[in-house]
Every structure is written in structure tokens, then in C-alpha cells.
Design a protein around this nucleic acid. Structure first.
Lengths: 206, 206
DNA sequence: GAAGAGGTATACAGATCTGTCTACCTGGCA
DNA sequence: TGCCAGGTAGACAGATCTGTATACCTCTTC
């Protein structure tokens, strides 16, 4: 990884108005199954059956399983970004609170989507070929998150934006995986407190 | 998860002297392929072919693919614990240095095993059934790591051992996944610095 | 009222996956 | 000498997987 190409904002519409009702049902069903059971463990027959749709319709709309996988990740990414934007628009927040709001949003998101961890990390575990079209979606989201944290950190302590951004990213990834493994409670609350500690230390060091 | 049963130390011998040479070759090959490509993406035919062994031998020794998966995770876990023990035995370290040595060991380990992240987390993404025998290996390792960090933290700041242990665990998980995703450099170095910061703050608060 | 988009139902092709079976070989050991 | 553990070689069974094909139905729209 670690290319020098730019952020890559071309995200899909989270509501997918381009899809027919049957196609939307397929994507929703596939997303749930992929997340709960893993990508390779879920076949197209199962997706079609659970979606209440014939396999022909599935292939007429998506063309291949690989395409459904890519759409699954891209749409979930788009929904997460929209979810996060909504959390940031909610009120006029201090720079520090805007950082902490990301951890709050993740906690709520994982609570709602009952957590098996990060779908991007999980997909990364199953996809070995960097040329796979899903790879760009996965790394794209992670780079977007890193840039988000770096930008938000810059509003708290401009001189250490890059350093702080990476540390916040590490905390967020740690909370995501810890929450999915469920080895100790309240991973996001903990990461949030640790983030607040880091931010206050960076502010004091000005 | 979050059972109340005890740690569960019954680990296998990392060198697996119980295996025949052909079986050891199978396990080594399977371990590499599972880690690089994912468990479901690798078939037993491929494992046998790459190991230079017939499929009959493979089934005579292991009985099922599931068993190879469990042995893959259990043996890797055992090797990691031995690797870590070796790092802790190396010299007489201060309590703080013993914590930081875990991050050093992980960095070296990932450097040698060229990282696609944590094999336990990756396996967790592919195994949905908690009754699967591999599940206990995965959660067992994570709980063991949490207890290790808690114990080591207790030697630095006894009053906050539990809290510190969880925070160190979160940092370590964050570094593992960040290293695997390769979205920013030197994740373990960063986690190590953050851990040192946390430990010094906990010591000052005594 | 013709056409086409978006469906259902179902069979099928071809590949791949886990697991089994028969037949044979080889070296160590009682 | 004979036995047996641990192999090789290779065919095969049965399930499952991705993807395609044929035939038909039902709206909406021009």
C-alpha cells in the first residue's frame, strides 16, 4: 500500500437510488450475511434465497459475486461517512469534542450494527490480491479516516496534527477490533478517554 | 463471549514433536496459506500439493480441515507466547520496560512474519459459529494477552492494574491492525510511545 | 397494443471442495 | 522373517459454488 495518489472521494450514494427494489434487497441481505459470516462463507444461492429473489435476478443486476462484495463495502463505507457527518453537524462542537464525537459515533454504530468488528478489516483478512477491486475500497476508507483524524487534530494542536492524527487512528482501530472481540467492556469509551488525554497533553505542550 | 471460566493454559508445544515430518510440513504449509490468503480461500488440495504430500496422508494425520485450522491457530499462539517469553527472559528489565518489550516483540514478530495483521482477528472474521473449536483458541489468546498486560501493569502501578491493562491491550490491538493495514508507518513504535506515556502518567498519579 | 424492463421458476454446465477408497512401496523393529 | 507405521499415486463420491440458459409473467410507457 502507501501509494501517493490522492484521497479518492468518489463514494456512492448511501441510499443507492440507482438500484431496483430487488437489487436493493439483494445488497442488504448480502451485506448482513457477509458481515456476520464472512465473504467466502456466503454463496450466491444463499443470498438469493434469503433475499427472496431468483439467482437470475441477482446476476442480471450485479453480474458477479465480486461486484456484490465491492458494492457491500462501498455502500457500508458511504453509510458510515454519512452517519459520521450527521454526528458532526449535530451541534457546534469544540475542536476537541469533534474528535471525541468520532468515538461516540463509532460506539453507537457498533451498538446498532451489533459488532463483529470492522467490516473493512474483516474483508481485508479474506482478500489477498491487492488487484481485487474491493482492496481500493478498504484502503480508501482507512486513508480517509486517517485524514479525518489528522484534520480534526489540526484544529486542536496544529503543530502536531500529523502525529496526533496517527495516534487517534491507532486508538480508533484498537477500539474497533477490541469491541469486535469483546474481551473487555466499553472499548470505545476507553479509547475516547485515552484520546481526550492525548489531546489535552498536546494542547498543554503548545 | 465474556465467560467467567479461567484463563485456560493448555497450550500445545510450539515445536509439535508429536507430528510426523509429513504432518509438520502440512501444518507449516497450511499456516502460511491460511494467513496469507484466508482460511476459506485455501482448499485441502492446495495445501497437500504445496506441502508435497498426498491428500491421503493429510487426512490420515489430521482427519479434517477443521482440525488443521485449529492446529494452525493453536500452534501459532504457542509460538507467539514462546517468542514473547524469550523477549522477557532476555535481561532483567524494569516493570515499565517489561510492558514495552511486548510492543518490541510484536514489532519484530510482524516484521519476520510479514504482516497481514493478527491471525486470530483474521480467523475471527471468517468463523461465525462460537461453537467452532477454533473460537476457543482465538478468545483464549486474547484473554491471555489481556491478563498478561494486566499483570505487567500491576508491577508498574498496582492500583490501576486493571484499567492500565485494558488500555495497553487496546493499544496493542490497534497497532496490530494498523500494521496489517499499512495506512501509516511504524504502528508498534507509536503504540509503544503511547504506552510509555500512559505508564508514566499512572506512576505520577500514585 | 406493442415493447421492453424487471421479475419468477427451474434446469443445467463446469469447476471446486471435503472426504474416502484401493493398491502399492519402504524402512525400522520384534 | 514378518509386521506395521507412514508414506505415494490416483481415482472417485457427493456436495457446493459461480454463472448461464430457457420459458414465462406483469407492469409501465410510448
Amino acid at each position: 500500500m502507501r501509494t501517493t495518489t490522492k484521497p479518492a472521494p468518489p463514494t456512492v450514494d448511501p441510499d443507492r437510488p440507482d438500484l431496483t427494489p430487488a437489487a436493493r434487497k439483494v445488497l442488504e441481505t448480502a451485506s448482513r450475511l457477509f458481515y456476520e459470516r464472512g465473504i467466502h462463507a456466503v454463496g450466491v444461492d444463499l443470498i438469493a434465497a434469503e433475499a427472496g429473489v431468483t439467482k437470475k435476478t441477482l446476476y442480471d443486476r450485479f453480474g458477479s459475486k465480486e461486484r456484490i462484495v465491492v458494492d457491500y463495502l462501498a455502500t457500508r463505507d458511504a453509510r458510515w461517512r454519512a452517519y459520521l457527518a450527521h454526528h458532526h453537524d449535530d451541534a457546534e462542537l469544540s475542536p476537541t469534542d469533534r474528535v471525541l464525537a468520532v468515538f461516540d459515533a463509532s460506539q453507537e454504530w457498533m451498538g446498532a450494527n451489533s459488532g463483529k468488528g470492522c467490516s473493512m478489516v474483516n474483508a481485508h483478512a479474506e482478500i489477498s490480491d491487492p488487484a481485487h477491486p474491493a482492496y481500493a475500497v478498504i484502503t480508501g476508507q482507512k486513508r480517509w479516516m486517517l485524514e479525518l483524524f489528522t484534520r480534526l487534530a489540526g484544529d486542536v494542536a496544529p503543530d502536531s496534527a500529523r502525529e496526533l492524527g496517527r495516534s487517534l487512528m491507532l486508538l480508533h482501530e484498537g477500539a474497533l477490533v477490541s469491541d469486535g472481540l469483546d474481551v473487555f467492556p466499553d472499548a470505545f469509551g476507553r479509547a475516547r478517554r485515552m484520546a481526550a488525554f492525548l489531546l489535552s497533553a498536546a494542547k498543554d505542550a503548545r
